[in-house]
């Protein structure tokens, strides 16, 4: 049984090879000269043609199956790439206490967002500025706005059209991390990035 399957598989493999090499061409010509009667010849030709047709049909089915497999494989790869791009796009940047200037260690993250925005011309994003709980509640709305604007200005100064970027400020109203220590505060002083439109099937830069 095992050997039969193996043979079948081999046969299929051969069929694939023939199928892919011949494409949809007519069967190869019989090179042996005709000896028997015309009826015999016709019978042989018919059986050969039938076998060839069957082989071609199987080859085509297999080719289709493989093509479908390739398509789904590449779709998965595309989705994986899209998710990577999305993650890179959403990577937050952080700020020093009561500051809104872009830190040196965040410029790389912003440069990646520039590249993503350039590779995906339909993509529009929203930047949300956030603060820690130490400042004044209302002042933090202005500070969060400054932080969102800082990131936007960086992207715009690197060639991204300003109309593709919306900004908003949440002040200290939406902390990422609960807690009342520097660890929590430093994580909460941040800009968040999210796609508004054109965020499906993001292309890798």
């Amino acid at each position: 049984m095992k050997s039969v399957t193996l043979l079948l598989a081999l046969g299929l493999g051969a069929a694939v090879l023939t199928g892919s090499s011949c494409g949809g061409n007519p069967p190869p010509q019989n090179t042996t000269p005709a000896i028997d009667t015309a009826a015999e010849n016709a019978r042989i030709r018919d059986s050969i043609a039938a076998a060839e047709a069957e082989r071609a049909r199987q080859a085509q089915a297999e080719a289709e199956r493989i093509a479908a497999q390739r398509r789904s494989d590449s779709l998965a790869a595309l989705t994986r790439a899209g998710e990577e791009v999305r993650t890179t796009l959403a990577a937050m940047i952080h700020f020093d206490l009561d500051k809104s200037n872009i830190r040196g260690d965040d410029m790389g993250a912003l440069d990646q967002k520039v590249a993503i925005l350039q590779a995906n011309p339909d993509l529009r994003i929203r930047i949300g500025g956030h603060c820690d709980e130490r400042g004044s509640d209302e002042y933090n709305l202005a500070l969060g706005n400054r932080r969102a604007q800082s990131a936007k200005q960086y992207l715009v100064s690197h060639g991204i059209d300003a109309s593709r970027i919306e900004t908003q400020s949440w002040g200290e109203e939406r902390p990422l991390v609960d807690g009342h220590d520097e660890n929590a505060w430093s994580q909460n002083r941040r800009d968040e990035f999210e796609p508004i439109s054109g965020g499906d099937n993001l292309r890798r830069p």
Binding site: E138, L141, A142, N145, R146, Q149, T167
Partner: peptide, 9 residues
């Protein structure tokens, strides 16, 4: 009131 825009608040 205060209004925060691209220019600041």
């Amino acid at each position: 009131f205060s209004r925060a825009t691209e220019e600041g608040t």
